[in-house]
């Protein structure tokens, strides 16, 4: 089956529903079609694992296809046609990847490969450690404890904001999406997203004013 993504999405969903029905009945050729066409669309969701070995990733991919066929195709039946099939499969795959990262085996590897290194690259593209990024006060154990308390306050402050401001701040600061992508996701024009981000920051800064002073140093006493 050739899925043209230039077609309107409802027509694609109709075609895909027929394919899933065939898969449910145990048609071998339908399964072959499904795997051959959609295995490429899914690869992006395994991109998060780029620090791991190729064998681990291949194992996960195989596990994913087995998971689809388990319990009389339960995972496929749950798809109700609200979205295209490729996004549904991507959703399952990202869940699988998250489970894998949570597992103990993954945590041991992550000690050497920290997440933060890749999050904030230098201007030249080199990765930086956390110590370079964070303000100096957080280096000690006491400051780390204080930071945890401040983070609670920040969480409360973010929860005080209005819903649209909260979405923009979260997607931008914690998920690292671009403004254009946020606009696409929330179905808003780009300029309103920019304005909302700016206003949300202003509101946050007024709420959090007691925890930092204007000057060189951050005031950590609460």
């Amino acid at each position: 089956m050739n899925t043209d993504y230039s077609q309107p999405k409802k027509e694609i969903i109709k075609q895909e529903k027929e394919l899933v029905q065939k898969c449910d009945q145990g048609d071998k050729s339908a399964w072959e079609e499904l795997i051959s066409t959609y295995s490429i669309y899914i690869e992006n969701s395994f991109n998060k694992l780029h620090g791991f070995s190729r064998d681990d990733i291949d194992d996960l991919k195989q596990e994913f296809w087995v998971h689809l066929q388990k319990n009389k195709c339960n995972a496929l039946k749950l798809w109700r046609g609200k979205s295209t099939l490729s996004t549904w499969l991507n959703c399952i795959a990202t869940n699988k990847v998250r489970d894998f990262l949570r597992s103990k085996h993954a945590k041991e590897i992550q000690k050497t490969d920290s997440i933060e290194m890749s999050l904030y690259p230098d201007k030249n593209g080199d990765s930086r450690t956390i110590e370079e990024i964070l303000p100096r006060e957080v280096e000690g154990p006491l400051e780390a404890v204080l930071m945890e308390e401040v983070s609670k306050k920040i969480k409360e402050a973010i929860n005080k904001l209005e819903a649209n401001y909260r979405n923009v701040i979260r997607l931008r600061e914690f998920e690292h999406l671009k403004f254009s992508q946020i606009a696409k996701l929330l179905k808003k024009p780009l300029n309103t997203v920019l304005v909302e981000y700016q206003r949300a920051k202003e509101k946050l800064s007024t709420i959090l004013k007691p925890y930092y002073e204007d000057g060189d140093d951050i005031k950590w006493d609460i």
Binding site: L78, W79, R80, K82, S83, W88, C91, R98, L101, R102, I115, E116, L119, Y120, I130, I133, L134, P135, V138, M147, E148, V150, S151, I154, E173, F174, K201, L204, S205, L208, Y211, Y212, E213, D214, G215, I218
Partner: peptide
């Protein structure tokens, strides 16, 4: 200073996000 504070919080959040799980109120994956 404020930007630094937010960024430091974001880094801490990235660690915690891995451990968070779906709650009962969350909408269906569909």
């Amino acid at each position: 200073q404020f930007n630094k504070l937010l960024r430091a919080y974001g880094i801490q959040q990235a660690k915690e996000l891995l451990l968070k799980e779906k709650s009962h109120d969350c909408p269906d994956d569909n």
